[in-house]
Design a protein around this nucleic acid. Structure first.
Lengths: 230, 230
DNA sequence: CGCGGCTTTGATGTTCATCAAGTAAAGTGG
DNA sequence: CCACTTTACTTGATGAACATCAAAGCCGCG
């Protein structure tokens, strides 16, 4: 029964994140109703204000969490890859999504009916405990990251973002920036022009190399120094 | 048994927040080991870095949640009164407290042994669900509040803080500011001098009256306008 | 009483946003 | 596939917003 070709949740690498403490037969029920969706870069996965009907989690890719502000300016709250999941945020405290989630790389999400998940949560305390720990971790990360950025100036913030993608997302000193200069600006709360100026300055100072969206960190020590004290 | 004079949790006005779904006998066990503590204004209730041994919640008063930054500057993350509880944040995702909690008004906290609470959480899914909803709400509030502040300029931020205390904390257009000008600055990410200048400006423009820590909002419409667009 | 922290105001300089203008890249419809 | 349009990127010049420095009065507390 668990070999049902439609249901490969047993082998899902994310299973242990949420479903370690769910009985196989319950997992099968959940799995039966799941819905996997592919999104290409730029796709809006969740729109703020929409009613929450599903429990959504990210299987592959990279997404941004944002909120529309006045005069069509967005604020980017955080980025998430699989394993540090985001749609958790509103799911248990609100009827509607408070934030928009957009794919910044091609992504795959898995949708579960929220009522089924809630039912499971109400009857299976170990599962609920797992969820709560996740919710707590995700929130904590966002709050801490925002504090970090807040206490820095322009250069420190740009350096911070570069190091964030290098260390936390790509594990490489060379990577393709998945977002535009404007999105960096929306994330760190500065203007696009000043983000560009700062990147150019880092280039002139031989701290990074820039080829369009491709970034190569040449002098990570100095970048870390700027992030910390600049 | 539930009339045990040492155990008045049955009548605690916070009971329904966390303990609606806890069986009376379990509640009694939890209650037996509880520890109520009074703190005067300025007392540090939780220090960042300390090991988390208790589940702490605020019964009375007002506290601030902060984090020490470099060169002895603090960043204030949020304020909490009873019912929107804060120590929840780290409790389930970390071994140690990530933030410092300080009383900004005389406060009373109730401490429960964390293991006992965790044991309850692991066996009582409705209780865990209640907790999770709380964690989710608290985090969401903090994130949203920080976004609001971030998108505003100096004047808008100061106006925002005044309205925050007026509307969310005191429900009155006249109130005593529980925090110093410096703490306002630490909360909104500006300098003390500029906070003071802005308050003085509001006074000159007859938007507020200032008597030391006492604030009287004279023209709330304009203050709201400044908060929104200033 | 005097010391340290909080508050206040002014003068000055730095950081950053805004405006402008041009180039490159990427999507769009015929 | 090419002309067209839009969006992203880049640099410079200017001014506004804000931090920093300085100095003085105030208040509470040991």
């Amino acid at each position: 029964m668990l070999d049902n070709p439609k249901c490969n949740c047993e082998n899902c690498e994310l299973k242990s994140l949420f479903f370690d403490h769910v009985a196989p037969e319950d997992l099968f029920d959940i799995c039966e109703i799941k819905y996997e969706t592919s999104h290409i870069k730029g796709d809006v996965i969740i729109k703020e204000g929409e009613k929450i009907n599903e429990f959504i989690y990210l299987k592959e890719g990279l997404v941004k969490l944002s909120k529309a502000s006045s005069n069509n300016k967005d604020q980017i709250i955080s980025f998430s890859k699989p394993f540090d999941f985001v749609s958790l945020l509103s799911v248990f405290s609100s009827e509607k999504y408070n934030y928009t989630v957009t794919a910044v790389e091609d992504s795959v999400t898995c949708l579960l009916d929220l009522d089924v998940v809630k039912r499971q949560a109400q009857s299976n305390s170990m599962f609920t405990m797992d969820l709560m720990i996740r919710v707590s971790e995700v929130s904590d990360k966002i709050i801490q990251e925002n504090l970090e950025i807040k206490r820095k100036h322009l250069k420190g913030r740009v350096a911070h973002v570069l190091l964030y993608f290098s260390k936390h997302i790509y594990n490489d000193t060379t990577f393709e920036l998945p977002i535009s200069r404007r999105e960096i600006a929306e994330y760190i709360g500065m203007t696009t022009e000043n983000v560009i100026r700062t990147l150019s300055e880092f280039r002139k100072d031989k701290i990074i190399k820039i080829f369009g969206k491709y970034i190569e960190i040449e002098d990570i020590k100095r970048l870390e120094n700027i992030s910390e004290f600049g």
